[in-house]
Design a protein around this nucleic acid. Structure first.
Length: 354
DNA sequence: AAGTGCTGCAACCGCGTATGG
DNA sequence: ACCATACGCGGTTGCAGCACT
């Protein structure tokens, strides 16, 4: 049972767009807008293209003020820090980089930035703790498939692994668990949970566990104005999705400081994402690739903090996409501010030339 | 000069979600 | 509440151009 095709594949042209097609699409949208229906658009214009293809072409190429290539260091920093915090949510990352498309950023990450950061670490012996085989875990020279990279770390997805590795690199840590030793690196809801447990421990006579001074930017999640990060779907469709107003010619970018993430969508996805990430962490930690008893204890504490008091999987604490992204862009998460203010990223660029 | 492999990018695919009837 | 349709997104593929042998 396949999915019904979005258009008549037989009568639809595929492959690269010709200048004529570009001109037709651009002229029409600039004059009339998308009309809120991409599927019907190609028929109106007389293009033998799928509506989705038209949409993609407009969003990624024809839309005004699109920038291609030439990513600045600042943009590199933003992409890197957001990738660490929220993973491969390219559309959210793109929303923070005016003029950049999610596709562009995705390609840039996959072909350049990832290699720049993760590519050459043969000198580093840190990462060998991931591996129990003879496979060189540091060899990311090729752009091979995601599964290629996982031979040395079964159970941990490529994305999660990359994020861990980036954390390790960017923090200059000696082992993968050090990330969990420093709650200042965690998303704020996790910090809060940890703080609560530590404060509880402190009040029970174990003051050494009170680590609050490590968390200068800690802010209770419930004090965040979550609504600040949303925009109505209608607005999203009009502005973010490229449906410009033909009358004012306004540029469909300029989503401003707001992240255009539908509430329902974002929340569900994030719970799922965190659930997955937790699972991956658990598997990873259970591998016990090296003996760090204290750090494993810390890791257990961290994993406990993913769960609420009932401990049910359905009630995991979640890292809101909007929250993370906002945190990253406003320097309220330490890894981001460190990246942006201290030029850490620059060091890696020097260390690992393309 | 020819062959081969690699890289970067544009485009496609299919799934999950939103929306309107 | 349910269903059909359209949209948005992330993963993946295909290919042109470049580099290397």
């Amino acid at each position: 049972m396949g999915r019904a095709p979005c258009c008549d594949k037989a009568n639809v042209k595929k492959g690269p767009w010709s200048p004529e097609e570009d001109a037709k699409l651009k002229a029409y949208i600039e004059q009339y807008g998308t009309g809120g229906n991409w599927i019907a658009l190609p028929q109106k214009i007389g293009l033998k293209r799928c509506g989705k293809s038209c949409r993609l072409r407009w969003l990624n190429y024809l839309r005004p003020n699109i920038k291609h290539g030439g990513f600045s260091e600042e943009e590199d920093n933003i992409i890197c820090s957001l990738y660490i915090s929220i993973g491969s949510r390219w559309s959210i990352i793109a929303a923070q980089l005016p003029g950049r498309t999610d596709n562009d950023i995705k390609n840039y990450w996959n072909t350049k930035l990832k290699k720049k950061l993760l590519g050459r670490r043969k000198q580093s012996n840190n990462i060998h703790r991931f591996s129990s085989s003879d496979q060189d875990p540091n060899d990311h020279q090729t752009t091979g498939s995601a599964s290629d990279d996982n031979q040395f770390s079964p159970g941990l997805s490529n994305s999660a692994l990359e994020r861990l590795q980036l954390h390790m690199q960017l923090q200059g840590l000696q082992n993968p668990f050090s990330f969990y030793n420093n709650p200042a690196l965690w998303p704020n809801p996790l910090q809060d949970k940890m703080i609560q447990s530590m404060q509880a421990a402190s009040s029970n006579g174990n003051p050494n566990l009170l680590m609050q001074p490590l968390l200068p930017n800690s802010q209770p999640a419930n004090e965040q104005s979550v609504d600040d990060f949303y925009a109505p779907k209608s607005f999203k469709d009009k502005e973010l999705d490229g449906g410009i107003s033909p009358s004012d010619g306004s540029v469909p970018f300029g989503t401003g400081d707001h992240l255009m993430v539908p509430k329902g969508n974002g929340n569900k996805g994030d719970v799922q994402a965190v659930s997955n990430f937790q699972g991956e962490l658990e598997k990873f930690l259970n591998n016990k690739t090296a003996g760090y008893p204290l750090e494993e204890q810390m890791a257990d504490q961290v994993l406990d903090c993913f769960k609420d008091t009932s401990g049910s999987k359905d009630s995991l604490i979640w890292w809101p996409t909007e929250f993370d992204a906002k945190s990253a862009s406003s320097n309220s998460w330490d890894s981001t501010s460190a990246l942006q203010s201290n030029g850490v990223f620059q060091d890696y660029e020097l260390g690992y030339p393309m």
